[in-house]
Amino acid sequence: MKILEVRNLKVYYFLHRGIVKAVDGVSFSVEEGEILGIAGESGSGKSTLAHSILRLIKPPGEIVEGEIIFQGKDLTKLSEDEMREIRGRDISMVFQDPNTYLNPIMKVGLQVAEVYEAHQNAKIETVLDKVVNLFKKVKITDPEKRIYSYPHELSGGMKQRALISMAVALKPKLIILDEPTSALDVTIQLEIVNLLKEMKEELNASMIFISHDLELLSEITDKLMIMYAGKVVEYGSTKEVFNNPKHPYTEALINSIKYIRKDTLPTIEGEPPSLINPPNGCRFHPRCPKKFDICDKTEPSLITIDGRKVSCHLYGEEE
């Protein structure tokens, strides 16, 4: 069953330099119990996409078109009050940098307890044991003491665990993770990823995992969506995408994370394009090693091939 369906979403930023088309016609869906990975470089629109699902886009950004269907409701049409109900309760989010998300002068346990306060009108004192249980679940050592710690007394990994506990507190149906491990050390990253997997199983929730780290995504996700310059270039099961990338960009990305000794690393020449003035036709064509005559003229559509969606002229048009 589909828990979330995004149809033709467009999110633009209106700057004085021009319109930044951060997300430009993106469609995808998340099945129940599935972890969808969204990969892309900075400026690919993956983070904007995540924020727009919870309608956290602030001016000058704006959702200009599209539908975000969550449990039958179009989130783009809800009022701000209705959205507030959904945030944290039905859809929660874990951010990249716990330091900017946690209030430095408030004890961590109380901050987590605030989630209950906000959604269930519970008094903070009455939910403290619930918080202790949550901390146990996310494997924070010594939870009875830790709920009274201030954020600066916790390590980066601990803080991220506290944020995760906040995100799972109300047993949401969907958890959006925006680069949840990028600020952490490699050894801690893997632990967090394993914790997230466990949480998903326990809550039977779905997850959207956004990251630039393909290596990590290969480990945790069921499906993978690769974004480039605000568009989806490839979207399919993680295993298949990794084993047999179809889009030249995906292929190049996967090549770039191979272990190669003392030799030239495969690269993608050039730089990601400007989103104000994206290239004509396929947005990847200026950097594409396989481009041919029509790539700079017409934009490829997202076609289904071998159970996977690819947006590349190499694979012809859909029947």
Partner: peptide, 25 residues
């Protein structure tokens, strides 16, 4: 060894010891 095993795509030949670190630094 834990650094080598913590990278999911690390080639098999470098994963002689499948060990992971415990706890926080």
């Amino acid at each position: 060894a834990t650094l080598l095993t913590s990278a999911p795509l690390m080639p098999k030949e470098f994963r002689k010891h499948e060990i992971y670190p415990v706890g926080e630094p």
